[in-house]
């Protein structure tokens, strides 16, 4: 017996159908955009709706990404995730409101600096709250889905109420920084500046996340951990620590999403996170629990669908996302890109 094998290396070839099945979710977004074009008819309205749909989708993705990874890694379902969206919005918007000199100036640099500062404050605070939330609320109920759902809902209520205690019971209205107001005209369509910024920003976050997940060791650990946590631990990595890191990062991203959403809506309420969670859950489910790419595609689909339908048939907009979820679950009961779990 010698070490050299004499068999020719072969690889199980992917058939064309397999390839298509793998690529199908990625194709859904352009298909939906095209269908939107056909249904709407006028280029300018379609363009406006597409940009706002993409902007909305990006923001939902930012909120959903942490949730799906947290579930994938430790099988933890956090119904309190939305609390960080609200908290982030209140912290970030408070920072903006405290800097009227920066936001009222018609200077792009100063405005962006204010927004970035607001985002930084919001992310630090929601990240810290996420850490505390994991320790106090989530840790005692590992492995018990039922209790997880119950206590994280409890946590959501408590944080929401604390927001009322700190910031008062009323919603807060705000104006976007000077240079982010208004719209630009492109091909006859009015595109709101802030929406374009949100698309760019969201895309940047998605790409950065992808880069971290693909190119860094910590990213490899996360991806491998979603698939087979026990094996990752058997290789010597402390998955618990990685999980806490992901939980904190996910909470901070939820906070970021909250700031972005607050600026988008120009009004914030303590209950906004709770309401966003509904879309976030739909996104996470149709994307496939644990899949960041799935959540990204799901979020874009939800954002686009909501905007197209709201234009075409306003009454149906509310249930359009439920319809989308139903359709996708009929096609793929585990979501579009489910993570293949070991075991």
């Amino acid at each position: 017996m010698t070490a050299a094998p004499d068999h020719a290396p072969t690889m199980t070839r992917l058939s064309a159908a397999d390839r298509l099945a793998k690529a199908a979710p990625f194709l859904l977004v352009p298909v939906l955009i095209l269908a939107g074009f056909l249904a709407i008819g006028t280029t300018s309205s379609w363009l406006t709706l597409t940009v706002s749909g993409l902007a909305m989708g990006m923001m939902i993705f930012v909120m959903a990404s942490g949730l799906t990874l947290v579930f994938g890694l430790m099988d933890v379902i956090n119904f309190g995730h939305g609390a960080f969206v609200s908290l982030g919005a209140f912290v970030g918007i408070s920072v903006l409101l405290a800097l009227p000199g920066w936001t009222a100036e018609p200077s792009l640099a100063l405005n962006l600096a204010a927004v970035l500062l607001a985002i930084a404050c919001a992310m630090v605070l929601t990240g810290l709250s996420g850490w505390a939330f994991e320790r106090v609320i989530v840790r005692p109920v590992y492995g018990a889905h039922l209790k997880q759902i119950l206590v994280t809902v409890g946590g959501l209520i408590v944080i929401e109420q604390l927001i009322h205690v700190i910031w008062g019971p009323d919603e807060i209205f705000l104006n976007r920084p000077e240079t982010l107001q208004g719209a630009v005209t492109f091909a006859g369509a009015a595109l709101e500046k802030y929406r374009i910024l949100a698309v760019v920003f969201g895309l940047a976050i998605f790409l950065a996340m992808r880069l971290i997940l693909r190119r860094t060791k910590i990213g490899l650990i996360v991806r491998a951990g979603v698939q087979n946590g026990q094996m990752v631990e058997s290789l010597g990595y402390r998955l618990r620590l990685v999980f806490i890191g992901v939980f904190v990062a996910g909470s901070a991203l939820a906070g970021l999403g909250g700031v972005m959403w607050g600026l988008y809506q120009e009004v914030i309420t303590a209950g906004m996170g709770e309401r966003m969670m509904i879309l976030v859950f739909i996104v996470v489910i149709i994307g496939g629990l644990g899949s960041v790419e799935g959540a990204f595609i799901g979020a874009l689909l939800v954002g686009l669908m909501q905007n197209y339908i709201a234009f075409l048939e306003p009454k149906l907009a509310l249930i359009s996302n439920i319809g989308l979820m139903t359709a996708i679950l009929m096609w793929r009961p585990q979501g579009m890109m489910p993570v293949v779990k070991a075991k």
């Binding site: 490899l220 991806r223 698939q227 087979n228 094996m231 290789l235 010597g236 293949v340 070991a342 075991k343």
Partner: peptide
């Protein structure tokens, strides 16, 4: 440890599997 089901991370490349295996 090499488990019976091999514990391969199927979504990762061969290279990534090996990089992960070098934990230190």
């Amino acid at each position: 440890f090499v488990p019976e089901d091999m514990g391969i991370f199927t979504d990762l490349t061969v290279e990534e599997n090996m990089v992960l295996a070098a934990a230190s």
